[in-house]
Design a protein around this nucleic acid. Structure first.
Lengths: 213, 213
DNA sequence: AATAAATTTGCCCAGATGGTCAAAAATTAT
DNA sequence: ATAATTTTTGACCATCTGGGCAAATTTATT
């Protein structure tokens, strides 16, 4: 395989390779330098859409405008399950139901999940305002509800914000990291995934949130 | 704000806008069409590194070679905490320790976490082989260990694979989605994040994994 | 100091990319 | 049928991008 006699790296080689690695890492997460939604070209979109490029630009002012639109429409649907957590239901069942709905959304619409993940991952250039406005308000509201349930002894005490983050993280993981999940589970276990994950999450919620007494 | 009288969309407008959105979504997650590591140019890397572009290509054969190198070095460090789960320790403590180490890694090295997330998110073009080889073997081994602990009654029964996925998802969430987390938590609560998250995860592990009897 | 080797740079290029524009084609209204 | 409007397209452009290359510069060797 390795045919080169592998000349040992000189001092300068080592230093600069390290420097480059560091710079690549830095540049990679510096939003002021990096784009974000690059990688998908207008030509590709046009090809898939079966339209010509100028035709696409006839409908959208720019490429970014397409993604803005996409993300806007996305967020609404994405937050529906959280919105539907009701103060009137049985607390544990409400949360288990939320998790189930969120998981189903992730498994059924992995593309949307990935788009959103990429947007956030790259610093949310198009949705930052919505996150700290609309989304924050919604989460604050639901966190307060969970807090109330805890105070009334209907749920075991837990930080509601981190609970919500965990639910987001765990459910979206199956969409965003599906390549990894599939690689590790193998073909058969992947087929049983939706059911097994559901059971896992039900168990997790029950053990985590059932009041001890 | 909105000055345009907003001419109502025609049928064709609505149809094609939807068509374009659909195509953008499709193209976005089609690995055969999309690149992946685009967005960070050699020029930007060069700028940050303080080197000229040809100079960078003197050290790395291509842009992709930089990322391959980066990802290779990354994976080793990233899997260390998992590797260190020991069959000789107290089961719950071993897992809590693992989670703590993983969380610290995420919080201290968010750039690495994000790079890896992007790679997986875009279909793991450079690491697919490692995932289904080295990584799968490692996870299989640790899953078997957890299974053994469960059989001996030292941990509450749970699917070990989904347990590991959840730990990955939850801990990396704080790095990969930091923008969202910060937007929702606000400044003060963000400052307390590392501690609060630690407490949250300890509680979660304890409730989830302590055998019922 | 002279020479050999390693490193850095300026200059160039071909292809891709986002976007423009005026003209052509299709649709709708009269 | 014809005029007005909307939609579609071919051709074009400036810029950016990854990368090549030979000359110039720096560093190590003798």
């Amino acid at each position: 395989m390795d045919e080169t006699p592998k000349p040992p790296l000189t001092r300068i080689q080592r230093e600069n390779r390290a420097r480059i690695r560091e710079a690549a890492l830095e540049a990679f997460t510096r939003h002021d330098l990096c784009g974000g939604l690059r990688g998908v070209t207008l030509d590709k979109i046009a090809l898939v859409a079966g339209l010509t490029k100028p035709n696409i630009l006839y409908y959208y002012a720019s490429k970014d405008a397409i993604y803005s639109d996409l993300l806007e429409n996305l967020l609404e649907e994405w937050l529906l399950p959280l919105k539907e957590i009701s103060p009137d239901g049985e607390p544990l069942a409400e949360i288990q139901n939320y998790v189930r709905r969120k998981l189903r959304l992730s498994i059924e619409k992995p593309r949307e999940s990935k788009l959103f993940a990429t947007e956030i991952l790259h610093g949310a250039p198009l949705t930052a305002a919505t996150l700290s406005g609309y989304l924050k308000d919604l989460v604050d509201e639901k966190a307060a509800l969970i807090e109330r349930w805890i105070k009334q002894g209907q749920l075991a005490p837990i930080d509601p914000y981190h609970l919500i983050f965990s639910i987001w993280a765990m459910t979206q993981h199956y969409a965003d990291f599906d390549v990894q999940v599939r690689a590790i589970l193998g073909a058969e276990k992947t087929k049983r995934l939706p059911d097994e994950a559901s059971v896992f999450f039900d168990t997790l919620c029950a053990r985590l949130l059932t009041p001890s007494k």
